[in-house]
Amino acid sequence: MLIFSVFKTLTDQRVTVELKNDLSISGVLKSVDQFLNIRLDSIKVLDETRHPHMMAVKNCFIRGSVVRYVQLPAEHVDTQLLEDATRREAANQAKR
């Protein structure tokens, strides 16, 4: 749930999603759900020569399970807040 909240705060920011098949897509994060499925607008494939079939695609929905990495805009991530929230969630998990 914590990471889901992080992504929600990053909506309308430009992120780069790297998939497990090595395709990297940068785009504006439009929405995210609990499975970390991601919807991107105004997308750009990083290596267009290797993936020419993606050139016409302007927006997409990415299934969460095929994501390897997401590169986030560092200036929009409050690392102190993240660490506190992570400790809080870890404490809640331990109570169960």
Binding site: M1, L2, I3, V6, K20, L36, L72, A74, V77, T79, L82, E83, A85, T86, E89, Q93
Partner: peptide, 22 residues
């Protein structure tokens, strides 16, 4: 997986071992 390694400063994780590194 896939012969990859990372080093980074850990800022968040969850029960799935999703991580956020800077």
């Amino acid at each position: 997986r896939g012969d990859r390694e990372l080093t980074g400063i850990l800022h968040a994780y969850d029960g799935h071992m999703n991580l956020i590194l800077s």
